[in-house]
């Protein structure tokens, strides 16, 4: 407990901590616990966790995740399966890495040094710095190279519009939320999209708004081809200056329902400290962990300072 509490307050704090450990708290209760200065007391939560641990079957604990689920979890974290050679990554688009430390209370011990645990990782770490700018340039180059393939096939012809603008539910409506973000976040930057020659991006304009402080943002498109979500979906990737650029953050999968103005909230799966490039690809339904970069439709990057 952070501060001296009366006996009544102490009892109430214990009640709330007990509730948090067993059935959870409402927003009001959580605020009350914070006001009592007791919200960082983890002892009740850990006691409940220990009870769970004491009563689980050890065989289940050793069994691991069912086949396939571990790959899904890795995919959600944007980490390639262990069987994938890191040396193959430069030719593909990896997902996202785990988060960098957040600004939280300091740990008691010295910071841990991340060891290199495999040859692939050692190679990746050695090469990571060199590729830091090259990866971004590579993306832009890849987008440019798509000009050669422009017209090779038409993508959007004859496809039915999807029934929703975005797969990510938001409240208030995206246009209103975007305007509010622009008004409220001092660091909210608006970056114009640059369309590639991909057929889906023909004549597409718009911008991306991103606030690093709020970790929120919105994509705005006009003229981006509607997609049939059963066949293809768009996926946003965010490159972060503080991360290895081989591992852009997955910004979410989304659909476009019309060629009119469409605003899509960004759903960054991990914290983005300093976005250096936003890129939208066309992927299979549900998105991918590793993009083949076959279809990049738009990119947006801050102007070099």
């Amino acid at each position: 407990m952070k501060r001296e509490l009366t006996e009544t307050q102490m009892f109430r704090a214990q009640d709330l901590l007990l509730a948090r450990a067993t059935v959870g708290l409402s927003d009001a209760e959580a605020a009350e616990l914070a006001a009592l200065g007791a919200d960082e007391d983890l002892s009740f939560d850990l006691a409940a966790a220990a009870i769970d641990l004491a009563t689980l079957d050890p065989r289940d604990l050793e069994a691991g995740l069912p086949p396939g689920l571990a790959d899904k979890v890795l995919g959600a974290a944007g980490v390639p399966p262990a069987s994938m050679s890191m040396s193959s990554i430069p030719t593909t688009l990896a997902g996202v890495m785990p988060p960098r430390p957040l600004p939280v209370r300091p740990a008691a011990g010295p910071p841990e040094v991340a060891p290199v645990t495999s040859l692939d990782e050692a190679r990746a770490k050695q090469q990571g710095k060199k590729r830091s700018r090259a990866a971004v340039i590579g993306w832009l180059a890849a987008a440019a190279c798509l000009a050669l393939a422009a017209g090779a096939w038409l993508w959007a012809s004859g496809q039915k519009p999807a029934d929703q603008v975005a797969t990510v539910p938001v409240e208030p409506p995206p246009a209103e939320a975007r305007a509010k973000l622009l008004a409220s976040a001092k660091d909210a930057a608006t970056l114009a999209w640059t369309a590639t020659p991909d057929p889906a991006a023909k004549g597409a304009t718009g911008d991306v708004v991103w606030s690093a402080s709020e970790q929120r943002g919105y994509m705005r498109f006009v003229g981006l081809a509607p997609n049939d979500r059963t066949q293809l979906q768009y996926q946003l990737w965010i490159f972060d200056k503080d991360r290895d650029e081989k591992f852009p953050v997955d910004g979410g999968v989304f659909d476009v329902s019309s060629t009119g103005e469409v605003i899509v909230p960004i759903s960054a799966k991990l914290r983005v400290t300093d976005a250096t490039l936003f890129a939208v690809t066309v992927e299979k339904p549900g998105g991918v962990v590793v993009s083949k970069r076959e279809r990049i439709v738009v990119t947006a990057a801050p102007r070099a300072s």
């Binding site: 689980l56 079957d57 604990l61 689920l69 571990a70 980490v79 262990a82 890495m97 990782e121």
Partner: peptide, 21 residues
């Protein structure tokens, strides 16, 4: 926390059974 992909895989292998249970 430091962004070690191998640790993520080890974490899933080590605690997958616990989380799943």
């Amino acid at each position: 926390a430091a962004g070690d992909a191998a640790a993520v895989r080890e974490c899933i292998a080590r605690y997958g059974g616990l989380v799943y249970s």
